[in-house]
Computed example of a mutant assay.
Amino acid sequence: MGSERFIRFVIFASYGNDSCALIQWAHEWQLEGVAVVYSDTGWATKEWRQRVEEKEAWAQSLGFWTYRTESIGFPNLAREKKGFPTQRYQWCSFRLKIEPGMRWLDEHDPHKSAVCLVGARRDEAKSPEDSRAKFPEYLVRSDNHGGRLMLAPFVCWDATARDELLHRAGIEPLPHRSRECRCINSNKSDMRLWTEDDIAEMRALEAEIGKPIFRPARHMGAKGIDEVVRWANSPRGKYGAEVEEDLFGCSTGWCEA
């Protein structure tokens, strides 16, 4: 399908705030030959899958082409590894995003002439040591993009400037991060927005693999997804096996944009 198209720009999008703003930015700059590529991890929340379909239709309405990369998917990767990634051994990102992205680029841009656009912003860094704090405005040869030119037009932007683009696109900024993967690095705010369907999928995968997705040592001893979600909904420092919580009746918010 992509062989007859001359792709000049590539946006790897999660369809969260930054990538949607980047799509609008490309539209306002009247870029042509734009491919918007979603990395399908096979582990998005149910709600996020619906958002991807909606935002793909929006990108197409702007004249852009939309694609999805194919990966082994998080459940099959866990089966292959007979376990789950950890903060120390995060092999999931390479297998689910980077490697499929490289394959997509090789197939659709074999001559490496396309420019890769990313929505990274330095103000997202949590500390001066965070790699995002010194994210480059461009790289002539980006290793993560197969040696192609990479541009990051938002590196010096704050969330307010980004949100102006979203408002011009008619998109309400999300009060949380993208949810294309129920990541092992999910924080309490992430977990509080998981639905019963999301949790049921994780419960079934834990039962099949025979191990918990989230390390108990990092979650006050909570073992298994049901206990981890209960930990996430407990007051700070108050989690305990004897505490009964209404996991889905509370009104929760996200602490990160």
Rank of each mutant, 00 (worst) to 15 (best):
F6T: 14
W194R: 01
I213R: 13
W58G: 00
V37D: 04
V228M: 04
G2F: 14
D246S: 07
S142H: 10
W65M: 11
W48S: 06
G253F: 09
Y239V: 04
Y89C: 03
G253R: 05
K238D: 10
E208K: 09
R162G: 01
K55N: 07
G146D: 03
L149N: 03
L165W: 13
K188C: 09
A13L: 09
K211V: 02
I199E: 13
M1A: 15
W58Y: 12
A169P: 07
R49V: 08
I225L: 05
E28T: 03
G146P: 01
T252Y: 12
A114K: 04
I72T: 12
S234A: 15
W48V: 06
G16F: 05
C183Q: 10
E54M: 13
F64W: 04
L205Q: 07
S39K: 03
H111F: 10
H27R: 15
T252E: 03
E227Y: 01
L166P: 01
R68P: 00
L105N: 04
H167G: 03
G146S: 03
Y89F: 11
Q24T: 02
R148K: 08
R103Y: 07
S113L: 15
R5N: 04
K81C: 04
C183Y: 06
G63T: 02
V228N: 00
D190S: 14
T45I: 05
C255F: 12
I209H: 09
E172H: 14
A204H: 13
C255V: 10
D198K: 08
F248T: 00
G237R: 09
Q90Y: 09
R132S: 08
E244S: 08
L77Y: 05
P128V: 12
G83F: 04
G170N: 07
T86D: 00
L149A: 02
F248P: 01
E47K: 14
W254E: 08
G119Y: 14
M202D: 10
R79M: 03
P110F: 02
K223C: 12
W254V: 00
R192F: 08
M150K: 15
G253A: 02
Y239D: 08
A200K: 13
G221S: 08
K112W: 00
H219Q: 03
Y138S: 14
R8H: 11
Y67E: 13
R95Q: 14
R162P: 03
M102T: 10
S251T: 05
M220P: 00
N17P: 06
D198G: 02
E256W: 13
K46Q: 11
C156I: 00
P85F: 04
R177I: 04
P110E: 05
V37C: 06
S3P: 14
A207Q: 15
I213Q: 12
I225M: 11
I11P: 00
W43K: 11
Q87H: 12
W104D: 02
I7G: 06
S127C: 09
E107I: 02
P136T: 07
C116V: 15
R215L: 05
P153Y: 01
Y15T: 10
E70D: 10
W25C: 03
G210E: 10
P216N: 07
H176W: 12
A152V: 03
L77V: 01
H176N: 11
G42Q: 05
S127H: 14
W43T: 04
